[in-house]
Simulated assay, not measured.
Amino acid sequence: MRALIAAAIGLAVALALVLTISAVGAPTGRTSPKPLLTTVPEHP
């Protein structure tokens, strides 16, 4: 029974955190226009 109560409390805390973050909104800012390099450039 304690495990069920602990799981319910954990789920409620996680849900409250998600709702808080979504209420605050995404941080404002700009993204870089330069693409990220995903490979190492070849050396001549």
Rank of each mutant, 00 (worst) to 15 (best):
M1W: 06
R2E: 09
R2S: 01
R2C: 02
A3N: 10
L4N: 04
L4S: 02
L4A: 09
L4I: 09
L4T: 08
L4H: 05
L4R: 04
I5M: 08
A6C: 10
A6Y: 03
A6T: 00
A7V: 02
A7S: 10
A7W: 00
A7D: 05
A8H: 10
A8Q: 07
A8Y: 12
G10P: 02
L11H: 10
L11R: 00
A12I: 12
A12T: 12
A12H: 04
A12R: 04
V13F: 06
A14E: 04
L15K: 07
L15C: 14
L15I: 13
L15R: 13
A16C: 10
A16R: 09
A16F: 11
L17C: 08
L17R: 09
V18G: 01
V18C: 10
V18F: 14
V18K: 12
V18R: 06
L19M: 08
T20D: 09
T20G: 15
T20F: 10
I21Q: 13
I21W: 15
I21S: 03
I21F: 14
S22P: 07
S22I: 13
A23H: 07
A23S: 10
V24G: 04
V24T: 04
G25E: 01
G25Y: 00
G25R: 00
A26I: 04
A26Q: 07
A26R: 11
A26L: 09
P27M: 02
T28E: 15
G29K: 00
G29Q: 06
G29L: 07
R30V: 04
R30Y: 05
R30E: 10
R30M: 00
R30I: 05
T31K: 15
T31M: 15
T31G: 13
T31Q: 14
T31Y: 15
T31C: 01
S32M: 09
S32Q: 06
S32K: 14
P33N: 01
P33E: 03
K34P: 02
K34M: 13
P35E: 12
P35D: 11
L36Q: 06
L36F: 04
L36P: 01
L36Y: 12
L36H: 07
L37Y: 02
L37N: 03
T38Q: 06
T38E: 13
T38A: 04
T38M: 09
T38S: 08
T38K: 10
T39W: 01
V40S: 03
P41C: 01
P41T: 01
H43K: 07
P44I: 01
P44D: 11
